[in-house]
């Protein structure tokens, strides 16, 4: 997945300036930067969920397998590019129905197929053992960390090629955070992952490549190790060492 000269506007305000970024397949890409730097906005243009905000528009191009994202049917795009949000957002339905939601809206109707898909997604998300006996219980009965893993499982149920995560661990304790990170490692062989995070250690732990955003610009994009050992831009260095601002 690739963005080319991407500019993004909220009405008059330009939130992204000329972003060129190549997201490698089956790798984990982390986006870091201070609040309001545009990293989440960028993430949310990749599956065009930003379009739900009035006044949003962009110039430039986003390509998925070389095909423009902007000219595709948006629902089929979102099936290919899944998303997990900052605050876990399980639907007020049972655990089973949460996972089955994506496959259902994408046309899967047979109960047997749905059961197979739900179990597979939950197993991949390492949640199966914890919830297999209460699939019909409301999802809201799960703990915060479990809810977020449920949301990842729900996104994975439609087998997206790319999974976008917008600060998925910001409300979780360290143990739940580590479980999610392990989960990312276990799905990255089949899925391209882009994660926005405020936690630099998290970016350092999980990401193969890291991009640093500031004031709507992509300041530096490189191997994660380089970003944290020897960044080439002073702004990046100041940010990662905590000398920012």
């Amino acid at each position: 997945m690739r963005s080319v000269n991407l500019n993004f506007f909220y009405s008059q305000f330009q939130a992204l300036h000329d972003i060129n970024l190549e997201i490698e397949s089956n790798k984990i890409t982390a986006l870091i930067g201070p609040s309001g730097c545009g990293k989440s906005t960028f993430l949310r243009t990749l599956n065009r969920i930003n379009e739900t905000i009035r006044g949003a528009n962009y110039t430039g191009e986003i390509l998925l397998d070389g095909v423009s994202v902007l000219s595709q049917d948006v629902t089929s795009l979102r099936r290919r590019v899944g998303m997990v949000f900052q605050k876990s957002n399980p639907f007020p339905k049972s655990i089973f129905d949460n996972i089955a939601y994506g496959p259902k809206v994408n046309g899967m109707t047979a109960k047997a197929d749905l059961e197979v898909t739900v179990e597979r997604s939950l197993r991949r998300s390492a949640l199966w053992e914890e919830v297999k006996d209460k699939l019909q219980k409301p999802a809201s009965a799960l703990s915060g960390g479990q809810q977020q893993r449920l949301c990842i499982a729900r996104a994975m149920a439609v087998e997206p090629e790319v999974l976008l995560l917008d600060e998925p661990c910001s409300a979780l304790d360290p143990i739940a955070t580590l479980k999610i990170e392990e989960l990312l490692f276990s799905i990255k062989d089949s899925t391209t992952i882009v994660i926005v995070t405020h936690n630099m250690q998290q970016a350092a732990r999980v990401a193969d490549k890291t991009g640093f955003f500031m004031l709507g610009k992509l300041v530096e994009f490189d191997r994660t190790e380089t970003i944290f050992k020897n960044p080439s831009k002073k702004e990046t260095e100041d940010y990662v060492t905590g000398r920012f601002g």
Binding site: N47, I49, T52, T75, S76, R78, R79, G82, M83, F85, K87, N89, F91, P92, Y101, G102, V105, N106, C151, R154, A155, V158
Partner: peptide, 12 residues
């Protein structure tokens, strides 16, 4: 977040 959650799964 529920709206976005459903839209992000490809629901119209």
């Amino acid at each position: 977040s529920l709206r976005e959650g459903a839209l992000a799964l490809g629901a119209n």
